[in-house]
Simulated assay, not measured.
Amino acid sequence: MSSTPETADAATTDGNTSMAAITHLLALFTWVIGPLVVLLVTDDEFVKANARTAINWQIWLTIYSLVAVVLILVGIGLLILPLLGLIDTVFVIVAAVKAADGETWSYPLTIDIL
């Protein structure tokens, strides 16, 4: 009887959790290109939802990075750019773990574009 709740939890996500997790990790190495390819190729709604969140985060990360580059003129951008790299890595890992658990994680500091 203890396996029933686990089965019920797994049944709530009809999607491919492995591919959803890989989609987030692809974003770490390929920017928006990897998740965009996954979004266009897959028919799985769970994977598509995760691909959209990964693309949205990468777009906003790019915007934040451009602002940081401008702020280099003031000096604070030199501190912000490495921090953004660290935040990106942490957020992508958290999103990949959540996706592997069957959850679509909404990245903080992100407004949905897609």
Rank of each mutant, 00 (worst) to 15 (best):
L71S: 08
L81H: 03
L86G: 11
I59H: 13
E45Q: 04
T53F: 02
K48I: 02
P108H: 10
T89E: 11
V32R: 06
V38T: 05
D44E: 04
L25Y: 07
E45D: 03
T7V: 06
W60C: 10
V92Y: 08
A99T: 05
N56D: 15
S106E: 15
T42H: 02
V32T: 07
S106M: 13
F46P: 02
I72G: 01
T42G: 06
I113A: 05
L86W: 08
L79E: 14
A99C: 07
D9R: 09
V74H: 05
I22Q: 13
L86P: 00
T104N: 13
V38H: 06
I55T: 10
T62P: 00
S65V: 06
G85S: 07
I33W: 04
L66K: 15
L40T: 08
P35K: 01
V37N: 05
W60R: 12
L28A: 12
S65R: 11
A54L: 11
V90Q: 15
W60A: 10
L109Q: 06
T17V: 05
D9K: 12
I93G: 08
V37W: 01
W57F: 13
G15A: 12
L36M: 05
T62R: 10
V74S: 12
P82L: 10
A11F: 10
L25H: 06
I93L: 13
L83K: 00
D9L: 10
L109P: 00
T13A: 14
K98A: 10
L109K: 04
L84W: 00
A49S: 14
T17L: 05
F29Q: 13
Q58I: 05
G77Q: 15
T53S: 15
T30H: 07
